[in-house]
Amino acid sequence: MARPKKTKNTVAMRDELINASAQLFNKLGFQRTTVRNIAEEIGITSGSIFYHFDSKEQLLEAVIEHGMTSGLSIVEEQLSELTGPLSRFHGLVLSHLRALNGPPGDAHKVSFREWGSLPQSARSRLRSINERYRNIWMDELTNLKKHRHLKSDPEYCRRAMIAALNWSPVWHKENSKLEWETASDQFCAVALNMTVTDFVEQRMKE
Rank of each mutant, 00 (worst) to 15 (best):
M1I: 08
R3K: 15
K5H: 06
K5Q: 07
T7P: 03
T7M: 06
N9Q: 14
V11D: 12
M13R: 15
L17Y: 08
L17S: 06
N19E: 13
N19Q: 12
A20L: 04
S21W: 11
Q23K: 13
F25D: 09
N26R: 09
K27R: 15
K27G: 00
L28G: 01
R32E: 15
T33N: 08
T34R: 11
V35A: 09
R36L: 14
N37A: 09
E40V: 09
I42Q: 07
I42W: 11
T45S: 13
F50C: 08
D54C: 03
S55R: 11
E57Y: 10
Q58A: 14
L60E: 10
A62E: 15
I64N: 12
E65Y: 13
E65P: 10
G67E: 02
G71A: 12
G71H: 07
S73I: 08
V75E: 10
V75Q: 06
E76G: 03
Q78W: 04
S80E: 05
L82T: 02
P85N: 02
R88K: 15
S95I: 00
H96Q: 15
A99R: 02
N101H: 01
G105W: 08
D106N: 13
D106C: 05
V110Y: 06
F112I: 04
R113L: 10
G116H: 14
G116K: 14
G116D: 14
S117C: 11
L118S: 11
L118Q: 11
R125M: 04
I129P: 07
I129W: 13
N130Y: 12
Y133R: 15
R134M: 07
I136T: 06
W137V: 11
W137I: 08
M138C: 05
E140S: 09
E140T: 09
T142D: 02
T142H: 05
L144Y: 00
H147A: 06
H147V: 03
K151I: 07
S152E: 09
S152V: 02
D153Y: 00
P154K: 01
C157V: 06
R158L: 01
A160L: 09
A163T: 09
A164Y: 04
W167T: 11
P169E: 07
V170R: 05
K173T: 05
E174K: 03
N175C: 12
E179V: 04
D185I: 04
C188R: 00
L192S: 04
M194N: 03
T195D: 07
F199V: 04
R203S: 10
R203C: 12
M204Q: 14
